[in-house]
């Protein structure tokens, strides 16, 4: 347990506290987007709908931030661990592998939690959004827990083991996912066929659960099962690829 606490402490410092990329990319980019589309470029939105738009877009940006953190930061951090030989150092010590991954997953979730809280604070302070504290907490919690499949997607991408491939995969996954799941613009603006694909994405499903909490509606259980299904598919794929790579490494190198 002592080593788990040490790992969480060190990983917090290197992945969150001292990581400029996290502040600039995972947190500032969604905040800039949010301020731009909810405060500056709002001329065409009727005053009566403005608050709803600001609230809906806040949720989109929370999830967008978690998407960036979960995929780009996770994939790059785990790749860095390999290229810097941190990974092999851990493998040569008595540290159990589950502890190695658990300490990182907890930090990645904390990273998403911090981003979500900061974006909510921007909404409260800049756009004067109001919600009961329980609703804020629930939206943040659902966003962080709901993006767990995306953390595993980041882990899966990191298995490419090559910086160029990892960057390419990050871009192939993150930006199309953000667009087709309606995080940047409302999904209704897209063609029907693209909307049906977008509705299958985990980011759309989390967004819908958050919207239901926001507007006091009943949460559609399909979306909860959808996220669980995504989690299972990505975890199983990650395990299979890890096993294949281990086999290849042991026998062929």
């Amino acid at each position: 347990m002592n080593s788990l606490i040490y790992q969480i402490n060190i990983n917090f410092k290197r992945i969150i506290l001292r990581n400029k990329r996290f502040f600039l990319f995972d947190m500032m980019l969604p905040i800039i987007f949010y301020l731009l589309y909810s405060k500056v470029l709002v001329n065409g939105i009727p005053q009566a709908d403005l608050k709803t738009w600001q609230m809906n877009y806040l949720i989109s940006m929370i999830i967008y931030s978690c998407l960036l953190g979960s995929i780009i930061t996770v994939a790059n951090t785990l790749l860095e661990d390999k290229t810097s030989h941190f990974d092999i150092l851990s493998r040569l010590t008595p540290l159990p592998r589950w502890q190695y991954y658990l300490s990182r997953i907890l930090i990645f979730m904390l990273l998403n939690l911090i981003s979500a809280i900061v974006i909510c604070l921007v909404g409260i302070l800049v756009n004067h959004l109001t919600l009961p504290i329980a609703n804020w907490s629930l939206i943040i919690l659902i966003s962080v827990l709901g993006t767990t499949p995306l953390i595993f997607m980041g882990i899966l991408i990191s298995l490419a083991n090559n910086p160029a491939t990892v960057n390419l995969l990050n871009n192939i996954v993150v930006f199309p996912l953000a667009i087709i799941s309606g995080l940047w613009w409302p999904i209704t603006m897209m063609p029907k066929w693209l909307q049906s694909i977008g509705k299958l994405t985990p980011t759309f499903q989390i967004s819908n659960i958050d919207q239901a909490i926001l507007h006091g509606k009943i949460i559609n259980s399909h979306y909860i099962f959808g996220i669980i299904l995504w989690l299972m598919i990505i975890v199983v794929t990650t395990l299979l690829i890890t096993k294949y790579q281990k086999h290849k490494e042991l026998n062929i190198e």
Binding site: S3, Y6, N19, H85
Partner: peptide, 19 residues
């Protein structure tokens, strides 16, 4: 082994904690 954003003291303390 060359990990970014970690000091010598931190990595040594972390490694000690494994044993």
């Amino acid at each position: 082994i060359s990990i970014t954003r970690i000091t010598v003291k931190e990595i040594l303390k972390l490694t000690q904690s494994y044993y």
